[in-house]
Design a binder for these strands. Structure first.
Lengths: 340, 340
DNA sequence: ACTGCTATTGTTAGCGCTAACAACGCGGCT
DNA sequence: AGCCGCGTTGTTAGCGCTAACAATAGCAGT
């Protein structure tokens, strides 16, 4: 029997032949079917091992009509938040035996999101996770068929879709309350871009907390998440002498703010307290170390995958809304207001 | 003719029937074959459009034995550098019509890299990009078959593999030279973890530049990339009064250093100049704005994909070594030494 | 001994596509 | 007229796997 061992990966039939069974029995062993005699299973496993056989996932996908690939659409994955979320998602998916195919976007427009959706659809992904921090991204989801399993991360209100997000509300409230409890009369807010859902949520929670505490609601400054925009906001605030506490919508902008204050000779937290949001790794080493809010991105990843796999298992799209925790991290950039 | 329009995605045969041709002709049109009459092509395209037909990539992959999926193994994608590289890779791959499947690692060990390789192999990726900034990652590649198309990013010496990396040498030399030219007698180096190839390359270039300039080579301090380790290094340096210039191996550590100096009352750049490496978005807003080295990560991504696709096209693994540019960004943290 | 069941294994037919080959029609050539 | 060659299209056979069904053996119950 001329054995053709010519650089061709072994297939199921090779294993079957070697184990002296049919290829279907090999398949059964591989899929953990019951009703395979223990001795047969052992023979098959031995043959698999000897041949270093690996099941061809493409053929499997064709036969089962499931690819075990999850598609992830992400935006600006060079930022700490999205990158961390993506990381959490990938870890959870791999642990569950799924593959992760990504499509990252330079900018969020309905068109770019649509193209990314197309790209992943072409790969026939089993499920979809869309990190959709902006209105436009959520809007682009409307074109998806209703039965498409999908989880929207940070999607605010995504009608009819499962959503996972960080508890922005709790985080922003906690910072604001923290500042008020230190004795500040009110807290100024430097918000993120208005079309970002996270920016909206943080601003809304800040405002609600002030109102609830009976504190005046000062006008909002708006940035674009960048240190530069925080710097500009800081320059503006530096000219005013009624400001004692600022809640900045993310740490990068807070950094810019700190720098503007430093240049203006404003002591932090001596004269003005500053708090951020995100707890990027650098935040603890700002000058001064930044009080901020830490988000549990790993949890976001895990919950997203869990929700998606749940949909795949039941075959029913869900509309659950899951919230991952966020908590205040107090450092040296916040203190009681100056006793003037 | 009872048309069964029952929630089943159309397949090639449906298109063929509608266009009045054989499914093979549809395939030919889709694959851009020559020798299809223009009128036939038009009919087919019309039918595709009417049915919103999408080719099933799984079946295609099974028939062609190519999945059009590229696997990427990445480490610590929450850091700015790796995240940017990954982003560049994904953009380039998608533009070339390839899918990107990722496996990110918490830690680099031969085992974790091996598992990630397994995971991607199971998906039968056509090619592999390994972002391997550490010795161990490169070592783990030894288990790959020699004919596996693979590109190693930041892989230092990866024998027999194609490598793409940033020109660490040029970047580190430029910073060091910059500091010497400002009049500093020598430059102290705070290095990254010794098992990181980038850390090694930066340190080696720093040392070579000093030697070349006839400057003394002071002992090296070592950190772990984190702001905290930079802070500790800064505290040590603060106790010495012979230091006038420090080249820190990345921006995050430089941030820690700046903070330590600030606490110690050391003026930057008045008494000590500090330079970093990476040009993270925050760097321009440190206090003072950081002189650093910017790396062209997008270019790294593009070149990696180009190199990989080249291997796939020729069927021959290459051992090219491609270097992406890095250039000095001078900001306010470096100046002439104090005139004592 | 015969029936009926269960546990185990084998056989067959696709999944939706591409590759290789076969077939066909048509104009130009001898 | 008959043949060749070319451009175009159809037919057939897999790619490697799983699902559904068929077949077999072994055993208990009557």
């Amino acid at each position: 029997m001329a054995r053709e061992r010519i650089r061709r990966a072994p297939v199921m039939a090779d294993v079957a032949q070697r184990a002296g069974v049919s290829h279907q029995t090999v398949s059964r062993v591989l899929n953990g079917h019951l009703n395979v005699r223990e001795s047969t299973r052992a023979k098959v496993l031995a043959a698999i091992d000897e041949l270093s056989y690996r099941r061809n996932s493409t053929a499997r996908a064709l036969a089962t009509r499931r690819t075990r690939v999850l598609g992830v659409i992400a935006f600006d994955t060079t930022l700490y938040g999205p990158a961390s979320t993506l990381f959490g998602i990938e870890q959870a998916a791999r642990a569950a035996g799924y593959f992760v195919s990504i499509a990252s976007l330079k900018a969020i427009t309905e068109r770019s999101v649509g193209q990314a959706l197309d790209h992943l659809a072409e790969q026939s992904v089993d499920g979809l996770i869309v990190i959709a921090p902006q209105r436009a991204a959520v809007a682009a989801l409307a074109s998806l068929p209703a039965e498409q399993p999908v989880v929207v991360v940070e999607g605010g209100e995504a009608p009819g879709r499962a959503v996972v997000c960080v508890d922005q509300q709790a985080g922003a409230s906690a910072v604001t309350r923290h500042l008020l409890e230190l004795g500040h009369e009110t807290v100024v807010h430097v918000a993120g871009p208005p079309d970002w859902l996270e920016a909206q949520a943080r601003q809304a929670a800040w405002q609600a907390t002030l109102v609830e505490a009976g504190a005046p609601v000062p006008p909002v400054l708006t940035g674009d998440w960048s240190p530069r925009s925080g710097y500009l906001a800081g320059q503006q605030l530096a000219t005013r002498d009624d400001v004692t506490a600022v809640f900045v919508a993310n740490d990068q902008m807070a950094l810019g703010l700190l720098r503007a204050f430093q240049e203006a000779g404003i002591e932090v937290p001596g004269r003005i307290s500053v708090a951020g949001f995100d707890d990027i790794p650098e935040a603890a080493y700002f000058y001064p170390p930044l009080t901020t809010v830490r988000q549990d991105f790993a949890e976001v990843g895990r919950r997203s995958i869990a929700l998606l796999l749940d949909q795949l298992a039941t075959g029913e799209p869900t509309t659950d809304r899951v919230v991952a925790p966020a908590h205040l991290v107090v450092r040296a950039s916040t203190a009681a207001p100056p006793t003037s």
